[in-house]
């Protein structure tokens, strides 16, 4: 009986992230539009886009291989599983011990790996430019992310997110310099990983500075829908991650009752809206960087991550 309940909860978590993800993307777009005095498309527009793409036929490049057709599903599945392992409204879910924060980073790495390969498959120059730049960004973002994971794990004594959140919510943490550094580093990583301004521009197409869009240029129809959905899921994952580690209050503990779960869910929605708003404000107030300035930007994250970790090695209370 308990097992069934656990499985239902886990399935609920997977459905929650899946259904909310396009909404978050739509919300950020909407706020950005309002901030620049445009009316903007409805928050629901990403859902409509997905439905439209799903119905359309796929136009496949002549020399595209099987890898090109399999990749969207692989990218989507890896991102979805990773997103489902980040605590959103409840912790202690039955499968949360399947993978810890390091494994979640690695799952996102798998998604990046496949999207970069897909970019190279058709053999166009745009695909190659996107893949090579994506891998360069990943080369710096991934270590920064792992260093953030180290600092968090050193404070909480575990890399398992459920344990981390339980510790963070317990109130023993207080305000720490190292956690502040980790928060800034994680934010920078999240911006870079999600192809947001100033690293990449999610709204642009046909520009020499584009990275993510260049890789997926040859995709269409349902394949493109899977990739767009995966991108939304990744944004939601990072927002949920920042939320659950740094603003852990309100997440339903293990074996919480129904009202605890509902409260957790509502608070999660509130956190999404608040963090999405902050992201939109940040994006509208900054300009896009040249590609070769991005390493400096990510270098800041790397150094902050390292400093935060080192501080914790000096003293566990910093």
């Amino acid at each position: 009986m308990e097992l069934i309940e656990n499985i239902v909860l886990q399935a609920l978590q997977m459905l929650v992230v899946l259904t909310l993800a396009p909404g978050l993307t739509g919300l950020v777009r909407k706020i950005k539009a309002r901030l620049t005095r445009r009316r903007g498309a409805s928050v629901l527009q990403p859902y409509r886009d997905l439905a439209r793409l799903m119905r359309k036929e796929v136009v496949l490049a002549e020399n595209a291989s099987w890898l090109f057709r399999v990749s969207p599903y692989m990218i989507f599945a890896a991102t979805w599983v990773a997103a489902a392992l980040v605590p959103t409204f409840a912790i202690g879910l039955h499968f949360s011990w399947t993978a810890d924060l390091i494994a979640i980073v690695a799952l996102l790495g798998s998604a990046r790996f496949f999207i970069a390969l897909a970019g190279m498959d058709v053999g166009t120059s745009f695909g190659g430019i996107g893949s090579s730049r994506e891998m360069m960004i990943g080369t710096l973002a991934e270590p920064a992310m792992l260093l953030v994971a180290f600092s968090v794990a050193l404070v909480a004594g575990s890399t398992e997110l459920s344990n981390v959140v339980a510790f963070m919510a317990s109130g023993d943490v207080g305000i720490r310099v190292s956690m502040g550094m980790a928060l800034i580093a994680l934010t920078i990583v999240a911006i870079a990983e999600n192809a947001r301004i100033p690293v990449d521009n999610p709204a642009t197409h046909l520009e020499l500075t584009m990275v993510h869009e260049a890789m997926v240029l040859e995709y269409s129809g349902r394949h493109l829908a899977m990739i767009e959905l995966a991108a939304s899921l990744k944004l939601l994952l990072y927002v949920a991650l920042i939320g659950c580690v740094f603003v852990p209050w309100g997440i339903a503990p293990a074996n919480a009752g129904l009202d605890g779960l509902i409260a957790g869910l509502l608070l999660f929605l509130a956190k999404l809206v608040a963090l999405g708003f902050l992201l939109a404000v940040f994006e509208t107030s900054i300009a896009k960087m040249r590609v070769f300035r991005v390493p400096d930007f990510l270098g800041v994250a790397l150094m902050l991550g390292l400093l935060g970790t080192l501080l914790l090695f000096v003293s566990r209370s910093l």
């Binding site: 799903m54 796929v58 490049a61 058709v122 240029l217 129809g221 349902r222 899977m226």
Partner: peptide, 22 residues
């Protein structure tokens, strides 16, 4: 499951064409 659902419920049409490359 997602691949099966998409092929089942949405569209499974596919056309080969020259590469787009902007």
């Amino acid at each position: 499951a997602v691949a099966w659902l998409v092929h089942r419920l949405a569209s499974r049409r596919l056309r080969r064409a020259p590469a787009w490359d902007c």
